[in-house]
Amino acid sequence: MGQNEFSVSSSVVVNAPAEAVFAVLADPRKHAVIDGSGTVQGEMSGPERLVLGSKFGMRMRRGIGYRITNTVVEYEENRRIAWRHVLPGRWRYELEPAGESATKVTETYDYAAMLPKLIARTGLPKQNLRSIEATLQRLKSHLED
């Protein structure tokens, strides 16, 4: 778990192969299941499996309801996937082998391309770190149960 100047991230080891973990992350319909922020409300639109350049939308709620469209901006099958919405911050998942059938999953919110010093003062990075930690635990539970 940690924070550098313009990103926050945390990791967890999931007792599942990278292919199984990546299948969940690359399926936007699963995002409401693993979301630890409580903001993803479902009603997903887009492809069943994300690839580089895929666009997918979802209904969100943080105080008020809204819809957001994301675009996959980084993609390496079974290793890395990242997306962003209208703001240039990126949500990134990186997968590494952690034994014969386990995977270390690192989720990062990278806001360096935004107004990072302003964003840092809002408290959003600390809030996002808590959400990342909760998401990783939900992902782990989803795959291990």
Rank of each mutant, 00 (worst) to 15 (best):
A16Q: 04
P17T: 07
A18V: 07
A18I: 07
V21H: 00
V24H: 00
D27S: 10
H31Q: 09
A32P: 07
A32V: 12
V33L: 10
V33G: 08
V33Q: 11
T39N: 12
Q41A: 14
Q41F: 07
G42R: 02
M44W: 11
M44Y: 13
P47G: 10
P47Q: 09
L50E: 06
L52N: 11
S54C: 03
G57R: 09
M58H: 10
R59C: 10
M60Q: 11
R61M: 15
I64M: 14
G65L: 06
G65F: 02
G65C: 06
G65S: 11
Y66G: 08
Y66L: 12
Y66F: 15
R67F: 13
R67V: 10
I68R: 08
I68Q: 14
T69A: 12
N70D: 12
T71S: 03
V72H: 01
E76L: 05
E77L: 15
N78D: 14
N78E: 09
N78G: 05
A82M: 08
H85M: 13
H85K: 06
E96H: 05
G99H: 03
T103S: 00
V105R: 01
T108S: 08
D110N: 01
Y111Q: 01
A112R: 04
A113W: 02
M114Q: 05
M114A: 07
K117T: 05
K117W: 08
K117E: 04
K117H: 05
L118A: 15
L118D: 10
R121G: 14
R121I: 13
G123Q: 05
L124Y: 08
K126E: 15
N128A: 14
L129F: 02
R130V: 11
R130G: 11
I132T: 04
A134Y: 07
A134K: 09
A134L: 09
T135V: 06
L136W: 03
L136A: 07
Q137C: 04
R138M: 12
R138D: 13
